[in-house]
């Protein structure tokens, strides 16, 4: 599963920074059918966690109400240099992770 994470490259200590995520995932609702009538099973990214140098800063529980190729944008306070890592799991048990570095100086 391909994903992208966007953060500012640098921030000042205490600055509120924007975190953006997109993940390539069909977020199957379970309500769709193949052309031959077979139902396509529900499979969505049901859980996503963002950690900043290991500490949880954001968590999402999602259902089929979140659009395909999910987009998330949230905020966190820049504390120290390091990385923000996003990890997630879907209904089929597939896991993914992506990280982006951040440099905090000031």
């Amino acid at each position: 599963m391909l994903a992208r994470v966007q953060l500012p490259r640098t921030a000042k200590p205490g600055e509120v920074i924007e975190v953006r995520i997109t993940i390539q995932h069909s977020m199957e609702t379970g309500f769709r059918f193949e052309l031959d009538g077979r139902p396509i099973p529900k499979n969505v990214i049901n859980s996503l966690v963002a950690r900043y140098n290991g500490a949880e800063i954001f968590r999402a529980e999602m259902g089929s109400g979140i659009a395909a190729n999910p987009y998330l944008q949230f905020y966190t306070v820049a504390r120290q240099s390091g990385a923000i890592e996003i990890s997630w799991v879907d209904d089929a048990g597939n896991r993914g992770a992506e990280r982006a570095p951040i440099s905090v100086t000031g």
Partner: peptide, 15 residues
């Protein structure tokens, strides 16, 4: 260029 979901395919193509 970040939120455009098509960029996920572009990024995959780059790989």
């Amino acid at each position: 260029d970040f939120a455009n979901p098509g960029m996920l395919w572009v990024a995959r193509g780059e790989k």
